Amino acid sequence: MKTQEELTEIVRDHFSDMGEAATLYVQVYESSLESLVGGVIFEDGRHYTFVYENEDLVYE
């Protein structure tokens, strides 16, 4: 099982292909040891929320 830090790095790496991230945040109260819930805000103003669970990243 991966730590939240490892899950955060996986998510950060995925979003790095989409541009320069200004902020990546984790909603600790919705996350667990198995999943990471949060969002990313890019330098150009785009904002996505995400759920990373079971090696699957879903974002909108």
Rank of each mutant, 00 (worst) to 15 (best):
S16G: 07
E55I: 07
M1G: 10
D13M: 15
I41R: 04
V51H: 08
Y52G: 00
E34Y: 09
L36V: 06
E55A: 11
G45R: 01
E30D: 14
T49K: 09
Q27K: 11
V51G: 01
S32D: 08
L7H: 02
D56G: 12
G39I: 14
L24D: 01
E55D: 12
Y59C: 11
E5W: 10
T3L: 06
F42S: 01
L36C: 08
H14T: 06
L24C: 12
D13F: 13
E34K: 08
F42M: 06
H14I: 14
S31K: 08
Y29C: 12
K2R: 11
H47K: 05
M1K: 13
Q4C: 15
L7C: 10
Q27Y: 15
E34I: 09
D13P: 03
R12W: 12
A21H: 11
E9F: 08
V37Y: 07
L7M: 06
A22H: 11
T3G: 05
A21R: 10
S31M: 11
T49G: 01
E53G: 05
H14R: 12
E60I: 13
G38I: 13
D56H: 15
D13S: 14
H47T: 05
H47L: 07
D17K: 15
E43N: 10
L36S: 01
T3M: 05
Y59F: 12
V37L: 06
E60W: 14
V51F: 07
F50H: 00
L33I: 10
G39M: 14
L57I: 09
F50N: 00
M1R: 12
E55W: 10
A21D: 08
M1F: 12
S35P: 02
H47G: 03
L33N: 12
Y59W: 13
E34H: 09
S35E: 03
D44I: 12
L7A: 03
E55T: 06
Q27I: 15
T23H: 12
M18S: 04
L24E: 01
S35C: 15
I10R: 07
R46H: 03
M1I: 10
E20V: 14
T3V: 05
F15Y: 03
T8A: 10
L33F: 09
E53S: 12
V11H: 01
L7I: 09
L24R: 01
S32Y: 08
L33K: 13
E9Y: 06
H14G: 05
M1S: 09
L57Y: 04
G38E: 02
T23L: 13
T8M: 15
M1Y: 11
M18A: 05
E30V: 13
G19R: 05
S31P: 13
L57C: 11
L57R: 02
G19C: 13
V40R: 01
D44A: 07
N54K: 08
N54Q: 06
Q4A: 08
Y25E: 03
I41D: 00
E5D: 08
G19L: 06
A22E: 06
H14N: 04
H47W: 09
S16P: 05
T49Y: 10
E60Q: 12
H47Y: 09
F15V: 02
S32F: 09
G38L: 12
G39E: 13
L33C: 12
V26H: 00
R46D: 01
